[in-house]
């Protein structure tokens, strides 16, 4: 039962790293607790080893959001409410602030953290597709070393990452984009309020003179783990934006997804819909850039 679980509240990050060195294998790091507490209650197998919860949400050093050296740094414990409201993120990384605002309810956004969303790595984690298209780099610390790793390399499979038991995800670094990008975070749920994504997409497009300079797209909830769809991205570059290309890209998206997932129970619905909505997003982004 959850009441038998021990609780550790480190005074600093250093203290936590030492603690993890000694007890890491039975420790789960907790911040907002919005995935862990329901998971423990429902006896989720991914938490069955947990004997101690190490709370990090009070560590102020993990909450900062700032821009320096052309990079945005987001601390692991930044909540989605903070991210949604943050002016820097709104300006430079609008897809991320949009996704943050669509996660759960106000009560959840006030507690849930960006690192929690990433580490939990649910297929429907809404912050992941925007982070992927923004080329997010993950900052990891342990008693052994500090290192950074591109987000896409961290995500292993649903509900699993490559983080070791003695490692802590301390934050993300996102390079500020050059000018001329437009983008959209798209989320489809079963209802309008507080919904789990059935399909999500993050799309960034940089146009010049009607042709595509840079193109980035990441999937959510339609692949087991959110991924960048590099085949489509490369195909799109240097081609002329327009409905013909967008239809081709959408069809390719359908083909890429089916390659990854095979036929699943939800495929007959999701596959046509994701192509259609991807096309709609691209048309909208193109129209916006034409009208300025």
């Amino acid at each position: 039962m959850i009441q038998d679980i021990d609780f550790y509240r480190p005074g600093s990050l250093e203290e936590l790293l030492t603690f993890l060195k000694d007890h890491g294998s039975n420790v789960k790091i907790i911040a907002g607790g919005t995935d862990i507490v329901p998971g423990l209650r429902q006896k989720a197998s991914r938490f069955s080893h947990v004997k101690t919860l190490a709370d990090i949400q009070h560590l102020h050093e993990l909450k900062t959001i700032e821009i320096s050296d052309g990079h945005l740094s987001i601390g692991s414990c930044a909540t989605f409410s903070q991210i949604e409201a943050n002016a820097l993120i709104r300006k430079h990384f609008p897809l991320l602030s949009c996704a943050a605002g669509l996660i759960g309810s106000t009560q959840i956004r006030n507690r849930a953290t960006i690192a929690g969303n990433v580490v939990n790595n649910a297929p429907c984690a809404d912050s992941v597709p925007p982070l992927l298209v923004y080329d997010a780099i993950v900052c990891v610390r342990s008693h052994r070393e500090d290192y950074t790793v591109p987000l896409n390399e961290l995500l292993l499979k649903p509900y699993q990452t490559r983080l070791n038991a003695d490692e802590v995800l301390t934050g993300f670094r996102l390079p500020v984009l050059a000018d001329g990008y437009r983008g959209e975070f798209y989320k489809l749920g079963r209802r309008r309020g507080v919904s789990i994504s059935r399909i999500s997409l993050a799309v960034l497009m940089q146009l010049q003179g009607g042709s595509i300079q840079d193109f980035r797209v990441a999937s959510g909830a339609i692949t087991p783990v959110s991924v960048r769809l590099s085949g489509i991205e490369e195909y799109a570059r240097d081609r002329k934006a327009g409905s013909e290309l967008f239809a081709q890209l959408a069809q390719q998206l359908g083909n890429e997804i089916i390659k990854i997932t095979g036929m699943r129970w939800s495929t007959p619905y999701k596959l046509p819909v994701v192509q259609q909505m991807f096309y709609q997003i691209l048309m909208k982004l193109n129209d916006e850039s034409v009208t300025g």
């Binding site: 409905s243 967008f246 239809a247 959408a250 069809q251 359908g254 083909n255 089916i258 095979g262 036929m263 495929t267 007959p268 596959l271 046509p272 192509q275 259609q276 096309y279 709609q280 048309m283 909208k284 129209d287």
Partner: peptide
Amino acid sequence: LSTGSEGNGDDASKLILKENDFIASSDL
């Protein structure tokens, strides 16, 4: 509704939209 392409069994290729399945945004 563009449901003509509904997949049957394992035939995923039928789930790839055709050119004229894409809807003008004003008709969505």
